[in-house]
């Protein structure tokens, strides 16, 4: 890994030191980039304008999510989508239940993933308000926000998830799977 990092640094110097070597590719316009720039990071960067409430989220969830994930986020009985709620305190047991509430370290990831990939049969079909609302409802199912909560870019980024400190960065720590 040290060798990889050293080689990376050398290449990094080459990638930063000079102008384009081949002049291939054209400038990406701000408009082009904006349409594809859909990632949301833990600091809230990338969250759009808009807002949504738990109450609105419950309505959208029933229409767009419940058929796979179950009425209360417990997992679909027929379509077998993964459970979204429950499992708190199960991670160190013989039968861990990894859900948004028990496992996910960042609430921003919920907005990011719903917007890019859900519902499975119609991704990128929900409006920003609808994604905020569904995110709020899933967090409510996990007891992370109150029933009267409304989320926007500011409030979503401030949510601290229960398993925020549950992860070790194996790349930085050279964990090597703990077995040498």
């Amino acid at each position: 890994m040290a060798g990889l990092a050293a080689a990376g640094l050398l290449a990094m110097a080459a990638a930063t030191a000079q102008g384009p070597r081949y002049g291939i590719g054209r400038p990406a316009t701000a408009e082009e980039t904006a349409g594809w720039n859909i990632d949301v990071t833990p600091d809230g960067a990338g969250l759009p304008a808009g807002h949504g409430s738990v109450r609105e989220g419950a309505r959208i969830y029933a229409l767009a999510c419940a058929s796979c994930h179950g009425a209360n986020g417990g997992g679909g009985a027929v379509e077998r989508g993964p459970p979204l709620a429950g499992g708190r305190g199960s991670l160190a047991t013989a039968h861990p239940d990894k859900t948004v509430g028990s496992y996910w370290p960042y609430a921003t990831t919920l907005f990011d993933y719903i917007r890019r990939a859900m519902p499975y049969n119609a991704p990128e079909s929900l409006t920003a308000d609808e994604v905020y609302a569904v995110s709020a409802y899933v967090l409510y199912l996990n007891g992370i926000v109150a029933e009267g909560a409304q989320l926007d870019a500011d409030t979503l980024a401030k949510i601290r998830m229960p398993n925020r400190l549950g992860f070790k960065n194996a790349y930085q720590e050279e964990t090597r799977g703990l077995w040498r």
């Binding site: 991670l91 496992y103 996910w104 549950g166 992860f167 070790k168 194996a170 790349y171 964990t175 799977g177």
Partner: peptide
């Protein structure tokens, strides 16, 4: 985060492995 992370016996998980 949710996927492709490795849960350990103490309930923490490896990320970016």
């Amino acid at each position: 985060t949710s996927k492709y992370t490795e849960l350990l016996p103490d309930g923490t998980a490896l990320q970016f492995f």
